[in-house]
């Protein structure tokens, strides 16, 4: 479980290149760091629901990102807040 305030990295993974899939992690966040704001509980994994497969419930988080980290142009005061399932997040160690 990821506590609010935890630094996380969105996996730099591209299942789209490996075959048919349905992914709810927007491409623009992959490989970027964010901060967990809160956990919402667990929801059936849409990556399985999309194929009518049995879907395990996975924890869902609200994660905040700096917009300027992703696109350098524009204001440095813009934040992006996005729902991301736990299997797409990796904790970032204090040492890194």
């Amino acid at each position: 479980m990821l506590a609010p305030g935890s630094q996380v990295l969105v996996k730099n993974d591209w299942p789209e290149t490996r075959g048919p899939c349905h992914i709810r992690t927007p491409h623009y966040l992959r490989g970027h760091r964010g901060v967990v704001v809160r956990q919402f509980g667990a929801f059936p994994n849409p990556e399985d629901l999309a194929f009518a497969r049995p879907a395990a419930r996975v924890p869902l988080y609200h994660v905040a990102f700096s917009r300027q980290d992703i696109w350098p142009e524009g204001s440095d005061r813009d934040e992006l807040l996005v729902e991301i399932y736990e299997h797409w997040l990796e904790p970032v160690g204090a040492a890194s």
Binding site: R24, T25, P26, F40, F43, P46, L60, R67, G74, S75, R77, D78, E79, L80, L81, V82, E83, I84, Y85
Partner: peptide, 25 residues
Amino acid sequence: RGLLAEWGTHLPEAMKLRVVDSTAD
């Protein structure tokens, strides 16, 4: 901020803008 200008909405430079991308449940 450029998008909001299409509606004539202009936020003060100092105001934080939070974009919520509704991706999941």
